[in-house]
Amino acid sequence: MSDRIGARFAQTAREGRAALVTFVTAGDPDHETSLEILRALPGAGADVIELGMPFTDPMADGPAIQAAGLRALAGGETLVKTLDLVRAFREQDQATPLVLMGYYNPIYVHGVQRFLQEAKEAGADGLIVVDLPPEEDEELCLPALEAGLAFIRLATPTTDDARLPMVLKNTAGFVYYVSIAGITGAATPDFTVVAEAVARLKRHTTLPVAVGFGVKTPEHAAAIAAGADGVVVGSALVDAVRSSLDGQGRATEKTVAAVTDLVAALAAGVRRARAAA
């Protein structure tokens, strides 16, 4: 299995800070601009990249990421093109961990073994597939681990101590803690409650714990980073893309910078958190 994820979290731990995990949607607002954004993320301060695989029925995503997926699909983005993005990203960056995030249906249609082989060959490090519970591990999780891809599981505020061992059993890379119940980008988390939840998770696993959903500002990122191993930001970055587009929904000269400027501010927030601790 690729050790890029583990190496990056080990590096940020040595630096005494949390990792900034950034989510963008493949093909949003178009394939070429999406690749520009992807390539610019590490230089702006992203430690780990989650690349969303657009899907027509993204039930766990809020309006911002749903809209990004629709923009990408309308622009012709496909699962094959998303893997092409990973391949093109790897031509210039061999160090930054990249995780594919999405839903099982497109993977199933593509063919599980074919997808896993192509994702690994393209340079992906892991998968987050939000609609496959641990009871379905034989469908994708175990084959992914066998193919050398980390399968990153989500834990939520409703994941109790009885359920947690099953959730963590085959999880690899890191644990993604969903800080609020519901869809992405919907509300601001209660940072005290999140800190307690992260501490509870750490009693059950040695994997890094990254926290996402509802993290929109450098201040939010700093608050989460004070206790978590990673801070995940998605909807705010996708909103930055949307706000940069022209009246026809096309990329402008401001689009890439809209994302990287916010990533730089978030990265500064993450680094400030431990410095202030």
Results as ranks from 00 to 15, higher is better:
residue 2 S to F: 00
residue 2 S to I: 01
residue 7 A to W: 07
residue 10 A to D: 15
residue 11 Q to M: 10
residue 11 Q to C: 04
residue 12 T to Q: 12
residue 13 A to D: 07
residue 21 V to W: 02
residue 29 P to C: 07
residue 35 L to G: 05
residue 35 L to F: 02
residue 40 A to V: 11
residue 42 P to E: 08
residue 42 P to F: 05
residue 45 G to S: 04
residue 46 A to R: 02
residue 47 D to Q: 05
residue 49 I to V: 14
residue 53 M to D: 06
residue 66 Q to Y: 03
residue 68 A to T: 00
residue 70 L to R: 14
residue 70 L to F: 13
residue 77 E to D: 07
residue 80 V to T: 12
residue 82 T to M: 14
residue 100 L to P: 01
residue 102 G to F: 08
residue 112 V to F: 07
residue 113 Q to D: 15
residue 113 Q to F: 07
residue 115 F to G: 00
residue 117 Q to I: 01
residue 120 K to S: 12
residue 123 G to C: 12
residue 124 A to D: 01
residue 125 D to N: 15
residue 126 G to S: 03
residue 127 L to A: 05
residue 132 L to V: 01
residue 133 P to S: 01
residue 134 P to G: 01
residue 139 E to N: 13
residue 143 P to A: 08
residue 153 R to L: 08
residue 153 R to V: 14
residue 157 P to D: 11
residue 159 T to A: 08
residue 160 D to M: 01
residue 160 D to P: 05
residue 164 L to G: 04
residue 166 M to H: 10
residue 180 I to E: 07
residue 185 G to Y: 03
residue 185 G to A: 04
residue 186 A to V: 03
residue 193 V to Y: 09
residue 195 A to R: 15
residue 197 A to G: 03
residue 200 R to L: 09
residue 205 T to Q: 12
residue 216 K to V: 04
residue 219 E to T: 14
residue 219 E to D: 15
residue 220 H to R: 12
residue 221 A to S: 09
residue 234 G to I: 12
residue 237 L to R: 01
residue 239 D to K: 08
residue 245 L to D: 03
residue 249 G to T: 01
residue 250 R to K: 15
residue 252 T to L: 09
residue 260 T to I: 06
residue 264 A to I: 08
residue 265 A to C: 04
residue 269 G to Q: 13
residue 270 V to W: 07
residue 271 R to Y: 04
residue 272 R to N: 15
residue 272 R to D: 15
residue 275 A to I: 07
residue 276 A to T: 15
residue 276 A to H: 13
